[in-house]
């Protein structure tokens, strides 16, 4: 049985993928999981996550969810860290442009589906929109209890005392709850859920949101959902109520207040400015004529840049 391997010959020139990459069979399986998730808000539905052409941990869950609900008429907005043109958002948007050929946009109001990692747009979403979250670790109890067998039991029995033990420890040690992102919530009075590593600043947005929220964790093979207008309560104590972080200053570019800001280091002498994390929101405000305290700064001109790159889009 020696001799040269009989290599199979391929026509490497061909190669067509199905609309939005996944085959229809797989999409149906994922849509079933999504429907189950919607029926049991906040419950993590196991699903047979596929191997995707991007690495686990880089949005495979979100991409599978988006691929399964995407239609030819949809308009997709892809953001990472609040911004449309961060590297991975660019990469994932390119994936759907290539495999589905759907329209994409930077404008929140124009999108029918928004896929996001770590942020929720500042502009409130509508009933005719869906937001898809990329989730790295879906299990809110994971760092208190590493075993899947045990955490599933704890969810089933609503055995969530341990969650408050952690919050208690935060207050006892720091005087306040020290969780700043992936802040646990209780959905519809039943399941404790991890809203993905969004800053807790965004937690109020997921409470009674008009849009359908879908959460996909590819590596951990879980999908969960929050239907429109569902009560979502951030865990807290009566005498230490949940509160979001506040920024002392408005956006340096557009002057927006009560929005989430990124800190931008300008030089090595402590120079810094704060700008909207939601880049589309910021641009829209500036287009409307709003200016922030640092808008005239040369650094701001660089950061604010022009409009989105038009090349190849």
């Amino acid at each position: 049985m020696t001799g040269t391997a009989q290599l199979q010959t391929y026509d490497f020139a061909g190669g067509e993928y199905n609309f939005a990459y996944l085959d229809e069979q797989t999409k149906r399986m994922i849509r079933r999981a999504i429907l189950k998730g919607i029926a049991i808000p906040g419950y993590q539905v196991p699903f047979a996550s596929r191997e995707m052409p991007m690495p686990y941990g880089w949005g495979t869950g979100g991409v599978q969810v988006t691929a399964s609900i995407l239609g030819k008429d949809d308009c997709l907005k892809m953001i990472d860290q609040g911004s449309d043109d961060t590297t991975n958002a660019v990469s994932l948007r390119g994936f759907f442009e290539k495999t589905a050929g759907v329209r994409t946009t930077y404008e929140t109001s124009e999108a029918t589906i928004v896929q996001t990692r770590h942020r929720i747009p500042e502009k409130p979403l509508r009933e005719d929109q869906i937001i898809v979250f990329q989730v790295p670790i879906p299990e809110p109890l994971r760092f208190l209890e590493p075993r899947e067998t045990e955490t599933r039991k704890m969810h089933a029995l609503e055995d969530y005392g341990l969650m408050h033990v952690k919050l208690y420890e935060d207050i006892a040690k720091n005087g306040h709850i020290a969780t700043t992102y992936a802040y646990p919530v209780k959905v519809n009075g039943r399941y404790v859920m991890d809203p993905s590593p969004t800053p807790k600043f965004d937690n109020p947005k997921i409470d009674r949101m008009a849009a359908l929220q879908l959460y996909g964790a590819g590596r951990e093979k879980r999908i969960y959902a929050i239907p429109p207008y569902t009560d979502v309560k951030s865990l807290d104590f009566e005498d230490y109520p949940f509160e979001v972080q506040k920024f002392d200053m408005p956006c340096g570019l557009c002057g927006a207040e009560n929005v989430y800001l990124d800190e931008v280091i300008l030089d090595d002498k402590g120079g810094r400015m704060f700008v909207c994390s939601d880049s589309d929101y910021c641009e829209e405000r500036r287009a409307e004529g709003h200016t922030g305290p640092m808008a005239a700064d040369p650094a701001a001109v660089h950061i604010g840049g022009g409009k989105q790159e038009e090349t190849d889009r």
Binding site: A178, F201, L261
Partner: peptide, 29 residues
């Protein structure tokens, strides 16, 4: 290893939104 390498290497992705939240907390503390 496909799962492992993906999740380990995803630390290369930008995390500045979460990091901002932590920066704020550490300064306060």
């Amino acid at each position: 290893n496909i799962q492992a390498t993906g999740f380990v290497e995803h630390l290369k992705l930008p995390h500045y939104v979460d990091f901002q939240a932590e920066l704020d907390l550490v300064r306060r503390m």
